[in-house]
Computed example of a mutant assay.
Amino acid sequence: MRERHASQGARRAREFEAFVAGAAGRLLHAATLLTAEPPGANPRARRLLTLALAHTYASWDRLRGEDPYDRARQQLALRFARAAWHQYGSFGRLRPSPENVLARLTPQERLILVLRLYEGVAEEQTAALLGLPTERVRAICARAMATLLHPPRGPAPTVEVAPS
């Protein structure tokens, strides 16, 4: 009995290691997009990924045919949303890195944009994951795209008038 549990544990560990080897890079990139941190300095993204993978590993035996990547991505998104909510009282604005174009977006806009465009999650699935109506997800995604495609202009240049 003990050997059987040991072999099941070893098999589980090998399967999970293979999953992480294939999925961790993409999940880390998604987490980095969510946090709007620079790719080389992304401690919040790495922590999000670590927690999402830990949760996925803990439920590995209960997946029963469910896609582990989808589970890890869900955990990543939910943990990001929860952290943004607790840190700012709502999905407030966070500008972690001004040179990052995604920093112009609210955390909620970033979350929806990353899920929809980078991860290719359908509107209905995104809405269900976040507990929002599909129309709201569509509107937030459109607003985020408009913000990225048409950034606000800086202040108008001052014109010096020559004395007459």
Rank of each mutant, 00 (worst) to 15 (best):
151 P>H: 08
102 L>Y: 15
59 S>T: 15
5 H>F: 15
59 S>E: 15
138 R>T: 11
60 W>L: 02
69 Y>R: 13
122 A>K: 14
52 A>G: 05
148 L>M: 06
51 L>T: 00
87 Q>W: 08
104 R>M: 11
63 L>M: 08
82 R>E: 15
117 L>N: 06
95 R>M: 09
157 P>T: 03
146 A>E: 13
5 H>R: 15
44 R>D: 03
156 A>Q: 01
63 L>K: 02
13 A>P: 00
150 H>A: 07
17 E>W: 07
84 A>S: 13
45 A>E: 01
164 S>T: 02
148 L>E: 10
67 D>E: 03
73 R>Q: 10
80 F>Y: 14
42 N>H: 13
129 L>W: 11
104 R>T: 09
106 T>K: 12
8 Q>S: 09
154 G>L: 05
99 E>L: 12
119 E>K: 05
115 L>V: 03
85 W>P: 00
63 L>T: 08
73 R>Y: 10
8 Q>A: 13
111 L>C: 10
57 Y>R: 12
92 G>W: 10
63 L>R: 04
22 G>L: 01
72 A>R: 06
153 R>C: 04
33 L>W: 05
86 H>D: 14
75 Q>A: 13
99 E>H: 15
37 E>V: 02
146 A>R: 14
97 S>R: 04
149 L>C: 07
46 R>T: 13
68 P>D: 07
95 R>E: 14
152 P>N: 01
84 A>D: 04
20 V>E: 13
153 R>Y: 02
31 A>Q: 06
21 A>F: 05
99 E>R: 15
111 L>H: 06
152 P>G: 00
58 A>G: 08
27 L>F: 07
160 E>Y: 06
77 A>G: 02
52 A>E: 03
148 L>A: 05
32 T>A: 04
164 S>D: 10
16 F>Y: 04
27 L>D: 04
81 A>M: 12
137 V>D: 03
132 L>E: 02
103 A>W: 03
28 L>I: 01
17 E>S: 14
125 Q>N: 11
150 H>S: 08
30 A>T: 08
51 L>D: 02
50 T>N: 05
27 L>N: 02
16 F>R: 03
33 L>D: 05
23 A>R: 14
17 E>A: 15
125 Q>E: 15
6 A>W: 11
133 P>S: 01
14 R>C: 09
28 L>F: 02
138 R>S: 09
113 L>E: 02
96 P>W: 12
105 L>H: 12
11 R>P: 01
94 L>A: 08
42 N>D: 09
158 T>P: 00
59 S>W: 10
96 P>K: 11
129 L>V: 07
79 R>Y: 06
31 A>D: 07
134 T>R: 15
83 A>Y: 09
96 P>T: 12
71 R>H: 13
131 G>F: 03
73 R>E: 04
57 Y>F: 08
117 L>M: 03
149 L>V: 02
27 L>S: 02
57 Y>C: 00
80 F>A: 07
114 V>I: 07
26 R>T: 08
14 R>N: 12
84 A>I: 09
17 E>I: 03
90 S>K: 13
96 P>G: 10
115 L>K: 09
93 R>S: 07
34 L>I: 02
59 S>P: 06
59 S>I: 14
133 P>Y: 04
13 A>R: 11
153 R>V: 08
13 A>K: 09
15 E>M: 11
46 R>M: 11
151 P>I: 03
99 E>Q: 14
119 E>Q: 13
61 D>G: 08
77 A>P: 03
72 A>Q: 04
134 T>K: 14
